[in-house]
Design a binder for these strands. Structure first.
Length: 229
DNA sequence: GCGACAG
DNA sequence: ATCTTGTCGC
């Protein structure tokens, strides 16, 4: 794989324009028995990132194991280029998994991106895996505020009116989350998947647990490697 | 030129 | 993203 740390933003943009041709947003019909969530954590001003993927059964969502890894990253955080900071480390965590999930939920957007290449799509294309993006804030697109009741949702569209994701009120009286297809799944499918992963919190269990794990990992509570639950 | 701007 | 206390509402 290319060394993202030496890329310039213009070069990264060209890479995204090439990779967008590989993204597939078609209905996913396979059965899901294993699902996973991915996230990154790091100390402010540090180049060390703590990446993690948590495996869990579906639809029960019981944790199966945690894959944690540390990596040095110098590519800066630039809105629209998050993948160049986080994907390399996530791929390491991915390869460390003893078994791969049927779907991976990534903390960030999928095709709800200026060039349709959010981190979930980027990872999906490189790993050849089904991915879904679940973000806490909008990066790109227009939408109407969904109703205040749990489950209310509105479409997220691009400048031409094409639907690129869904704004979902995962819980009553919380800010909505942004769901979009990463790779090998469509908008309705990604929404249905995430809805089934929401329990008692605003964020779906896969990314919520992944966030908790990488944070504990960074703080020294959890250790590097794959750990079965 | 002025806003918007994942993590 | 991370830092960081008390405070408001369910």
């Amino acid at each position: 794989m290319k060394d993202y740390n030496t890329l310039t933003v213009p070069e990264a943009t060209l890479l995204q324009q090439e990779m967008r041709k590989e993204v597939i947003t078609a209905p996913f019909n396979g059965k899901i028995q294993l699902i996973a969530g991915a996230d990154i954590s790091f100390n402010k001003f540090s180049t060390t990132v703590y990446a993690g993927i948590v495996l869990m059964r579906f639809p029960g969502l019981e944790p199966v194991g945690y894959s944690l890894v540390v990596k040095e990253v110098t590519f800066p955080y630039v809105p629209g280029f998050l993948a160049f900071r986080e994907v390399p480390a996530l791929l390491d965590a991915w390869q460390q998994l003893p078994q791969k999930p049927d779907v991976l939920v990534v903390d960030g957007h999928g095709i709800a991106h200026p060039r349709r290449m959010g981190i979930a799509s980027h990872f999906g294309v490189l790993a050849g895996q089904v991915t879904v993006g679940s973000a806490k804030k909008k990066l790109y697109g227009s939408y109407e505020e969904p109703g205040e009741e749990r489950g209310a949702h509105t479409p997220l569209t691009d400048k031409q009116g094409v639907v690129i994701g869904t704004v979902l009120r995962s819980k009553q009286k919380v800010k909505p989350i942004f769901v979009s297809p990463g790779h090998l799944i469509d908008v309705p499918g990604s929404l249905a998947l995430v809805e089934q992963c929401v329990r008692k919190h605003r964020l779906p269990e896969p990314t919520r647990l992944a966030h908790n794990a990488v944070n504990q990992f960074r703080l020294g509570v959890l250790s590097q490697g794959y750990t079965p639950v």
